[in-house]
Simulated scan of single mutants.
Amino acid sequence: MTKRNDLLRKIGDAAKAAQLAWEVEREGGNHTIYNLGGKKIPIGRHAELGNRYAEMVYKQCEEVLGEGWWRK
């Protein structure tokens, strides 16, 4: 299981290194919508997220951060 805070921190650190904005766009019903350099990324509000779900979120960020950015 992946902790939500760890996922957010990992994306935030990568965004900072790439000098991109990483901020809360709005609160949805069951998700928080984040803005990553102009791309909207929805992330569920559970304290622990499944590993497959985390990988899905990382892949959504590839468009902005580059392919396989989370494996480096």
Rank of each mutant, 00 (worst) to 15 (best):
N5D: 14
M56D: 15
K10M: 12
N35L: 09
R71V: 02
M56V: 06
K40H: 13
Y34R: 01
A54L: 04
Q60E: 13
D13V: 11
E55L: 13
N35I: 08
E23S: 15
I33H: 14
K3C: 04
A17F: 09
A15V: 12
I33V: 14
R71T: 07
K72C: 02
R26T: 09
E62I: 07
T2I: 11
K40A: 15
V64G: 02
G68N: 14
R52I: 00
L8Y: 02
H31P: 01
D13A: 11
K16E: 12
E23W: 04
V24S: 08
L49G: 01
R26D: 00
G37D: 03
K3H: 11
L49F: 03
N30L: 09
D13K: 14
R52H: 05
Y34H: 07
A14P: 00
Y34G: 02
K10A: 14
K10V: 03
I41S: 02
D6A: 13
N5I: 12
E48T: 12
Y53R: 04
M1E: 10
L7F: 06
P42V: 11
V64T: 10
I43N: 00
K72G: 08
R45L: 08
G12F: 06
L20T: 00
A21T: 11
I11C: 11
L65N: 03
A21Y: 03
M1H: 13
V57P: 00
G66I: 07
H31F: 02
V64D: 01
I11G: 04
E25F: 10
A47V: 14
I33M: 13
W70D: 05
R71D: 11
G68A: 08
E67Y: 08
A21R: 14
R9L: 12
Y53G: 09
T32M: 06
G29I: 05
Y53F: 15
A47S: 10
L20F: 09
I33C: 04
L7G: 08
L65T: 03
A14T: 05
L65H: 05
R52D: 12
D13T: 12
K59S: 07
R26S: 13
L8F: 08
L36C: 03
N35V: 07
G68E: 09
K59E: 07
N5V: 11
R9N: 10
L20Y: 05
R4P: 04
G50P: 13
L49M: 13
N30F: 12
N30Q: 15
K39N: 10
V57E: 02
Y34P: 02
D13Q: 13
H46V: 09
I41L: 04
R71M: 08
G12E: 03
T2Y: 09
P42Q: 11
G38A: 01
L65C: 06
I43G: 00
K3Q: 14
R45A: 01
K40P: 10
R52Q: 07
N30G: 05
G29Y: 04
A47R: 15
Y34E: 00
A18I: 07
L20C: 02
E25W: 06
R4E: 08
K16G: 02
G68M: 07
W70T: 02
E63G: 14
E55F: 05
T32D: 00
T32S: 04
L36M: 01
K40W: 00
K10L: 13
V24L: 15
W22V: 00
N5W: 12
E25N: 14
G28R: 09
C61M: 05
G44V: 10
G44D: 05
I33D: 03
R26Y: 00
K59F: 01
A14N: 06
